[in-house]
Design a protein around this nucleic acid. Sequence first.
DNA 1: GATACATCCTCTAGCCGCTAGAGGTTCAAG
DNA 2: CTTGAACCTCTAGCGGCTAGAGGATGTATC
Lengths: 142, 142
Amino acid sequence: MLTIGTLSKKTGTKVQTIRYYEQIGLMPEPGRTEGGQRRYDNAQLDRLSFIRHSRQLGFSLDAIRELLDLSDHPNRPCHEADAIARRQLKQVEQRMARLKALRTELKRMVHECSGGRTGDCKVLEVLRDHSECLTEHEEIGV
Amino acid sequence: MLTIGTLSKKTGTKVQTIRYYEQIGLMPEPGRTEGGQRRYDNAQLDRLSFIRHSRQLGFSLDAIRELLDLSDHPNRPCHEADAIARRQLKQVEQRMARLKALRTELKRMVHECSGGRTGDCKVLEVLRDHSECLTEHEEIGV
DNA sequence: GATACATCCTCTAGCCGCTAGAGGTTCAAG
DNA sequence: CTTGAACCTCTAGCGGCTAGAGGATGTATC
């Protein structure tokens, strides 16, 4: 029987986060002591590890919900899990491509900064005038 | 004199977002018509373009606040702007490194999926057992 | 001058994935 | 039996928007 604190330490998840996962139905409601404190078993520890590891690989909580569901039904065909992972891979590759373009632009900005006054600063100039950019980078928030 | 809708179209910023920027003090309070509608001038259009372009390059609203401040004072030395850009560059590079590791792992997962039942699915297996990973990827949320 | 209707206004609440804190209770060791 | 660490619930906040309700304004056309 594990307390929430033990689970927290074993998985590197904050206590509040574990309770949050329970609240949104990602973790099942655990047993309780007479006094009302949560007690977990090893199955629940495994489940939380799965969740955390998936988060580290960038899966959204919704995707994890699906993956957990698939994991709970070992006889179903696994192409769905595969599809989710492929989707995630694609997203990661898109993000990388975008970051690469940003890096190019930032490098150029920093490189061309003369170190003089802000009035002549290449960094600020580029920010002011998108046409000085070599790449397009329309989407915000990646 | 530009309406908020015109500003929105010209910069690709949603109307609500412009009002939000005003609310948090990133955009100045514009003039108003008698009826109370916002009217902007070209200086404000430039400012919004600066903000949006900076967002596209991944700067946080706080960083943009600093950059705008520097941009407003052309006689100051520009090493601060340079430092902010370098910081951003560093962050982008860190994210890229992390994404690269994730990509490796995801590729391997997807590649090893046999296409059978979920019970034997490599994707789910890897998620279950971190020790099957080649790389460490501890941080969440990049 | 009247009417239509697109655009504007304010306000509140929601998104994701947590995180923090207040204020109070329970558990386990000594 | 006392201490004090760990637990409990509840509410609110983070960044950076986004959506919708419910109503007012502005402009083009008749």
